[in-house]
Design a protein around this nucleic acid. Structure first.
Lengths: 337, 337
DNA sequence: TTGAAAGCGCTAACAA
DNA sequence: TTGTTAGCGCTTTCAA
């Protein structure tokens, strides 16, 4: 059978209270008994049951992560770095793939509460806002990544998508492009990136042509290819297109390719996320890098601080993206037309 | 405070035993009290504590997944489908990213045991075999993916890498290629794929030239590019190269590109894994698809059956890969040289 | 059909 | 410095 604290206590000739104090470094224990008990624990290969100590009201040292889709490399990296930081701080990670489905969100949250996780991290595309509101009301430790809810007092870590969109556009403008298209998906990040794009145009004294922004029904390369087509078939087609993530941008490249357009000579293209995809396509894709590691580590720090009651305030951390210039973008003067 | 079974019992005017029986569908309870108690549970929004029931020796309905690197898309997909199937069967997933580091493996396994997970799934590249042996000796439910240990009685699900390598080579041979190189990584899968490649050559009556197989120190595109270079600079350079995963194959393509070689006219290239990368490069990469979803679902089925004591036997499931032909491979007669 | 009570392994207040 | 003991919330045996 499994070794319990009783076995240790008996073999060491002390009480369970003494053993417990030694495990948790509490109270005052003589060096002598401490050594003796530790020796017995080693011999017996004793591992305290976290279940039992959790039942006594202590922490489970487990956090839940609600994420829409692990097969998306960006989310997988979030998960990786969250796990990494959690592990450094002694927390395990329970992963819940929600498919951005509100029913699953509900189910998972209630399950995580039944399992008494110490806190929950909610990633992008979370639908069921009411659920979050309830959790906050209960004082349940919660943190958000890539999902900002200005109306709710929740710790969050986001990358400045607005700035990302602004920088991309500013860069394209600096290359001389004035007629700039956007292929986006429907989520919050894309919306922010579009806003940044628009503001950059305004700041440059240009007007915004709504027809140059298309939003894909599904965030896939195939859809982007299709929608980019309509942009490229415009009478006055854009000289540059901003894809709100790398897959979309590559869809744009493919649509251009199908029409016999050469990148970057006929069309500049830029993406977002700096996935391996962007390094592999020909020409390599200019893009924007998110500080994924920082985001993951930061959100765990915020959450664990809440869990440990060290911080009552709400923190909203905004991290800055970084533009990476490769071969898919070009000065307009050097372009063919 | 949190609602407990006592609150429910008191409000419903029954004992906790009765409530417990109703929750677990055990014993015999009159329809009347059942309804009454269920109504109270609803009103109170009662959620049984899994911690407490776990302490009583019941299952935690949690499984652990030890995986080397979540940022590798293949592993992320494993995780996704494992989580998916787990969720269908009522199990949560605790993710542990080991970096293929034996110390972390040890730490995680002991942690998972402290947290009383019901079983553990171990993915590719696991180092610490002794650890697994101990787990088996204890009768701890265990299952493997993409990692076959013939010496140990563990349930496992693998894809037939040998067959994959064989099929790739057979296909290349059917195109007329005889001088076929391989760029591999150092793991078990690559070794199997190489063996399949060699057997296919033998079966075709050809001899194996060991110099045509290079193994990268690190499984990255950069390394593959470097090593493929040495293959391409050979006096009698291969007319086709098999990259043991898509990243490696793309490294090969890049090395070829740097040398002014056109794919597939000067060189056929084929990969493995069918990641998005393979669809995005130009020319698109022929590759081999693994049934990731089947693998993930299958391994969870095996493990949970062990957990529930429904199966004492060891199962080794081998799934078959599928070759996908795209544009990076060509009949040798159509090639330039 | 129902309930009383013991106990899962641990912690912490209190006593010695 | 150490030990006694009462629970944490649940399940299960046994008796009613």
């Amino acid at each position: 059978m499994k070794i319990t604290i009783y076995d240790v206590a008996k073999k060491a000739g002390v009480s369970t209270a003494t053993v417990s104090k030694i495990i948790n470094n509490k109270g005052s224990i003589s060096e002598k008994t401490k050594l003796k008990v530790q020796k017995v624990m080693d011999e017996l290969q004793y591992q305290p049951s976290m279940i039992a100590s959790a039942l006594k009201g202590k922490s489970t040292y487990t956090i839940g992560l609600l994420i829409p889709d692990l097969s998306n490399p960006i989310f997988a990296e979030y998960a990786k770095y969250i796990e990494e930081r959690g592990q450094e701080l002694g927390f395990s990670l329970m992963i819940c793939n929600t498919d951005a489905n509100p029913d699953k969100e509900l189910k998972y949250i209630s399950l995580l509460k039944q399992k008494q996780v110490d806190g929950i991290i909610v990633a992008a595309r979370f639908k069921n806002i009411k659920l979050l509101r309830d959790l906050i009301k209960e004082g349940f430790p919660l943190a958000l990544i890539a999902r900002d809810l200005p109306a709710l007092p929740i710790d969050s870590v986001t990358v400045d998508d607005y700035l990302g969109g602004y920088q991309v556009t500013e860069y394209l403008l600096s290359l001389g492009h004035k007629n700039i298209g956007v292929v986006a998906e429907g989520d919050r990040s894309s919306k922010e990136r579009i806003k940044g794009y628009q503001q950059a145009l305004i700041d440059a004294g240009l007007t915004i042509d709504k027809n140059l922004t298309v939003v894909c029904d599904h965030p896939t390369r195939e859809y982007a290819k299709f929608h980019a087509g309509s942009l490229l078939d415009l009478e006055k087609r854009p000289s540059a297109i901003f894809g709100c993530n790398d897959s979309l941008a590559i869809g744009v490249m493919q649509a251009a390719h199908e029409r016999g357009l050469i990148i970057p000579n006929d069309l500049s293209v830029i993406g977002f996320d700096n996935t391996e995809l962007s390094q592999v396509v020909v020409p390599s894709l200019s893009t924007v890098q998110q500080p994924l590691k920082d985001i993951g580590h930061h959100v765990v720090d915020l959450l664990t601080r809440k869990i440990e009651g060290k911080s009552k305030m709400t923190h909203r951390v905004v991290l800055l993206p970084d533009i990476i210039i490769r071969q898919s973008t070009m000065q307009i003067e050097n372009m063919k037309n």
